[in-house]
Write a protein that binds this DNA or RNA. Structure first.
Lengths: 252, 252
DNA sequence: ATCTCATGTCGTACACTGTACTACATCGGC
DNA sequence: GCCGATGTAGTACAGTGTACGACATGAGAT
């Protein structure tokens, strides 16, 4: 975090010339609307410009490059991801849980945001700072030294990103088109027949492996439950560290 | 996981015609070498073909599309990420820890692999299956019901992906070029002066905020320690669930 | 009211991308 | 020796990000 510069000098209108027709926020909003409606690949400079009734190259007076535009979009998402002010619990576990759930919901809504598209500087926008501020407020009551607070905050952010990226967004078996299923089943059978996958073989049995897989997945917790469970485990672990640390410092 | 088909019919040579000059593995290796040396954006069909002394369009007889090629590359990474066979501890915590550390190392070495480039099918390659098999072996001793085993495995994978994506790969303040620092500092000052960031203000003080930030980050745990700590917390949490569950089932 | 000129707008052009289409080269089986 | 399936490519096309430069605009100075 805290790298790159989302907002150049442009904040001051620098008087003595024509007024801009757009704001960076408007451009970001237009790009975001396209991304939400048609996917991130539909966001091209020409497309965004057209949506704004502008010439393509006009965008380059508001944005240094396309990845600059991505950084603006990222920061717009960070706004959506903020918890409503004054709604944060004083209990650090509840507060972090609320932040994590909200973040997950936003990232699921905008899948491109969790992939690291803007490799540089997307994380230091004003709304990212606000998110960081909210996280700092959440962990204020832990009594941890500051470095450990930052560690805890980053841990939550990391967990959310990882869960969304791998568990929420990665397509599961249900995404396989029906006509491709037989070929994949044959491939799977062939792999299993090598004998290199004893546990996997035991897991899927010899019968209808699709049915077996569906049964297992259906019997397990829902994604929401899994997210909450992993978060709880992380917080349990952190709480253990905290109480241990408090017990230690109380002895002095 | 388990979607898409990484290896089409090609496995059988389908006799009666010319022999192929390349294998899919060779093509993936060439692409991987380029990605490691010059970044994922340098991997273009023309570039890969040239590296193989082949015409561009020749690749399309081994690969249906570029994202197919990405899927091959992903699976190649999954091979690197495998733990040496028979080196897995019988203790499920040790085994999962070994798998997680190895996965992290591989993903850090190949940053593009952790971003979801191949949106479809990259996760069902033969080496991905092997990784899954290793994870199943690791959790075999937990005594958990199968759905909870899968949950635990996914949780580790998620954590690793998130940590690499956000903590390892996201550039930190040290990545800011020296000439950009003043502008960013001014921007930060301006933001803080709004008074909307009480905790952040307290964190950074009023003096040299760069120095303060560097001091905090320097005083904290290293990335390696942070990774291990988060992993331990997750495993602690899971262990608590397991012993609770065992105690409950012993009562029946 | 006019002039000045920094600023905003944007048409054209270029190098480069993935890949559809097509023609041709190659070689195992008859 | 021939056939025909298969591997190898050249050409072409639509679409990308963006460098360059010409032009339009309108606020401040005269």
């Amino acid at each position: 975090m805290l790298s790159g510069m989302p907002e150049p000098v442009w904040a001051r209108p620098d008087p003595g010339a024509r007024r801009p027709r757009y704001t960076r926020a408007q451009i970001a909003a237009a790009a975001l609307a396209i991304a939400d409606a048609e996917g991130i690949d539909a966001v091209t400079m020409r497309r965004v410009a057209t949506a704004l009734d502008a010439g393509t190259m006009t965008l380059y007076h508001y944005v240094r490059s396309k990845s600059d535009l991505f950084a603006l979009m990222q920061d717009a998402i960070m706004e959506e991801l903020l918890v409503p002010p004054d709604s944060l619990s004083a209990d650090w576990r509840e507060a972090l849980t609320a932040i994590a759930h909200r973040a997950r919901a936003s990232f699921v809504r905008h899948p491109w945001a969790v992939r690291g598209i803007a490799t540089d500087g997307g994380a230091a926008g004003p709304h990212a700072l606000r998110h960081f501020e909210q996280s700092l407020a959440a962990v204020a009551g832990t009594g941890l030294p500051i470095a450990d607070k930052l560690d805890l905050i980053a841990m939550i952010d990391d967990y959310v990103a990882g869960f969304v990226l791998k568990s929420d967004l990665e397509p599961g078996p249900e995404a396989i088109p029906a006509e491709a299923a037989p070929a994949i089943a044959a491939y799977l059978d062939e792999q299993l027949r090598t004998g290199d996958y004893p546990h996997l073989t035991e897991l899927l049995g010899d019968g209808d492996r699709w049915a077996a897989l569906a049964g297992i997945l259906g019997s397990g917790p829902t994604p929401d439950e899994r997210f909450a469970r992993g978060l709880r485990r992380l917080l349990d672990g952190a709480a253990g560290d905290i109480s241990r640390l408090n017990a230690q410092s109380a002895r002095h």
